[in-house]
C-alpha cells in the first residue's frame, strides 16, 4: 500500500509540475480586436430618370425602406441610369457602380416588367463588357399608354449568360433584387 501511495504521489507531483510549467509558458492576454468597416455591401440604389423634356428625377431605395414609385409620362422615352452605393457610413458613401464598370464582364443588370406598358432597352451610351454586350447600367425606358405595374431590377454577379428572358437563364448570383412600382400617366 505504501508503495502504491508513493508511486501515485510521484506521478501526481510529476503531472502537476508539467501542468504548472505549461501554464507558465502560456501568455494569457489578448490584444483588442480591430474594428471592421465593411465596404462591399450595396445598401442603397438610385435610379436617375431623365425624361424626354430633360427633367430629371432620382428614385432611391435605402436598406430597410420600401422602393419608391417611379412616375413616367405616357408615350415618351426616358433615359435611366442606375447607381449602386454602400451608404453604411453616411458621411462617406462609396459608389459601387465604379467597381461594376471595372468588372463589366462579371456583372449584368437585368430588368423585368410586370403589367405596365413599358419596354426597357440598353442605351447607346451604356457600358459594354469585353464581348461588346451592354450591361444595362444606362437604359432607355419607352412608356406607352397609362398603366401601373412593377419593374424588378437585378444586379447579377458572375452570370453564366447575358441573354435570356427570365432570371434563371442568366445564372450567377443576385447582388440586388428590387421591385420598383411604376406609374405611367
Amino acid at each position: 500500500m505504501k508503495n502504491f501511495i508513493q508511486t501515485t504521489y510521484t506521478h501526481i507531483s510529476h503531472t502537476a509540475t508539467v501542468f504548472a510549467l505549461t501554464l507558465l509558458f502560456i501568455q494569457c492576454k489578448k490584444d483588442s480586436p480591430e474594428e471592421i468597416n465593411e465596404e462591399e455591401v450595396i445598401n442603397s440604389v438610385t435610379l436617375t430618370v431623365t425624361a424626354a423634356d430633360g427633367s430629371s428625377n432620382d428614385y432611391t431605395w435605402n436598406e430597410g425602406e420600401s422602393e419608391p414609385t417611379i412616375t413616367l409620362a405616357a408615350n415618351t422615352t426616358s433615359n435611366v441610369s442606375i447607381h449602386f452605393y454602400d451608404a453604411s457610413d453616411a458621411s462617406d458613401v462609396e459608389d459601387i457602380t465604379e467597381e461594376v464598370i471595372e468588372e463589366a464582364d462579371e456583372h449584368f443588370v437585368f430588368y423585368q416588367i410586370s403589367s405596365a406598358s413599358l419596354s426597357i432597352a440598353a442605351a447607346s451610351n451604356d457600358v459594354e463588357d469585353s464581348d461588346g454586350t451592354s450591361i444595362n447600367l444606362k437604359t432607355e425606358w419607352t412608356a406607352a399608354g397609362a398603366s401601373t405595374g412593377t419593374v424588378r431590377v437585378y444586379l447579377i454577379h458572375e452570370p453564366t449568360s447575358k441573354t435570356g428572358t427570365s432570371r434563371g437563364e442568366l445564372g450567377g448570383s443576385t447582388d440586388i433584387e428590387l421591385d420598383f412600382p411604376v406609374t405611367i400617366q
Binding site: H157, E158, T160, R167, G168, G171, S173, T174, I176, E177
Partner: peptide, 22 residues
C-alpha cells in the same frame, strides 16, 4: 450554383431541375 445572393436565388434554384450556373 450554390453561391446565392438573395432568397430569390434559392426560390429559383428550387424550381429548377438543373443548377442555374453551369
Amino acid at each position: 450554383s450554390a453561391h446565392v445572393g438573395t432568397v430569390g436565388d434559392i426560390a429559383r434554384a428550387l424550381e429548377s431541375d438543373q443548377p442555374l450556373s453551369t
